[in-house]
Design a protein around this nucleic acid. Sequence first.
DNA 1: ACGACGATTTAGACTAGCCAAAATTAATAA
DNA 2: TTATTAATTTTGGCTAGTCTAAATCGTCGT
Lengths: 234, 234
Amino acid sequence: MLSDVMEDYLKTIYQIQARSGPPVSTSAVADALEKTPPTVTSMLGNLEDRGLVTREKYKGAELTPEGETVALEILRHHRLLEAYLAEHLDYSWSEVHDEADALEHHISEEFERRVAEALDDPVVDPHGDPIPSADLAPLEDDEATPLTAHEVDDRVVVSRVSDRDRDELEYLADAGITPGTTLEVVDVAPFGMVTVRTGSDAEQSLPESVAEAIYVRPATDAAPAGGSTEVSDA
Amino acid sequence: MLSDVMEDYLKTIYQIQARSGPPVSTSAVADALEKTPPTVTSMLGNLEDRGLVTREKYKGAELTPEGETVALEILRHHRLLEAYLAEHLDYSWSEVHDEADALEHHISEEFERRVAEALDDPVVDPHGDPIPSADLAPLEDDEATPLTAHEVDDRVVVSRVSDRDRDELEYLADAGITPGTTLEVVDVAPFGMVTVRTGSDAEQSLPESVAEAIYVRPATDAAPAGGSTEVSDA
DNA sequence: ACGACGATTTAGACTAGCCAAAATTAATAA
DNA sequence: TTATTAATTTTGGCTAGTCTAAATCGTCGT
Ligand SMILES: [Mn+2]
Ligand SMILES: [Mn+2]
Ligand SMILES: [Mn+2]
Ligand SMILES: [Mn+2]
């Protein structure tokens, strides 16, 4: 029914909308998908005709509930695939994203079910991003804040890490920083470099670009430092 | 580089060529892919321009070595996926084909490697079809003959079963007839219906359309009746 | 209030893939 | 040998998705 291309537009609009709220500008979509603005304008027209987005000329687009459901469906596929690849095919968390991007449009609902079952209905992917439920109910907003917004002596737990940059993910994996890791902010230098203590010993200095990809929540008092994987409630 | 569509043409030409030999007619490809003859003529022109097939006008097409390599690559993906779905995601052999068709163009070489590894480099898929090796060396011809070509009292081992028709596969699964099963031909009726004994007790009558989808080889003397999965050499 | 500038849309064009109708060719039958 | 017929190719046209260049809009600074 919907082409791969349309699904990618809807997924992208959803993700921009989730970060910056509507309306989503033509150029933001063009940047994210590496297309030209006229191309995006044209496709937004198609999506509007199909009732998947609403649009105000020269302002931007916003997903309709139908459009959001499609976006959640693709996001569910993507994140289930990431989790499956990591869990059952020995992929590292820096490798899963591209493979999931290629497969997310092509798996059947049956495949989705069986993968979810093999993983026992996971609620987060390897980067800590929430996996939409099978009924595609809207995701609740994320309470996490970027590590760059924190101050010295803050104790925080890593909630999720942006999966956009493979190199950053490898860097963080080496540093032992993954979702669930407890961090203590040791220093915030000019230009946004953040130094954190992981566990009780190792210290890591993170360039701003890396630190702002790490989303964290306040550590609960009793939490020991280290890399557990549990996710607390909101 | 190559589109999904082109890959499907090459795979299809390979399979027709394997059964009937070159040249492969325009209409044979059109039938297999459910396209019109002009569409196929046009695409064969593209494939010829890319050096993947050779063509003689009004006669048909034949894969070049490069075209055959691409076809084997796709076939390897398809059959590895079928094997993986059956082995690790609990698909039945009647379900795997469509899912593999959808995914075969979209997996990475890394995914291919990991799936092959998870399966310990399998040599046949769930239907008994050979899986091309990682180096894509040409497959040797198949010695198996259709069950319809056999006579009463012949004892044979099922080598492979055409995976084209889901209903037939379910029928055969119920009848306990899978690759490796030893059969004894009990009766050949007019209109090609074949009755076989599986194991030492059950008898099954198979309509011609089903019987001609079953490819068999002579049973070695010591082989007991039943559903073992080993594959003998050529 | 107005002009400049950046963002957006419109206009026009291109490719891949597809089909229907018409023309052509090869094979077969008279 | 010639005529019929079936397969194939050619012709022309359609949609989806993309781009460049040109026109237009909205905003922001003066
Ligand atoms: Mn789904
Ligand atoms: Mn992810
Ligand atoms: Mn491959
Ligand atoms: Mn198969």
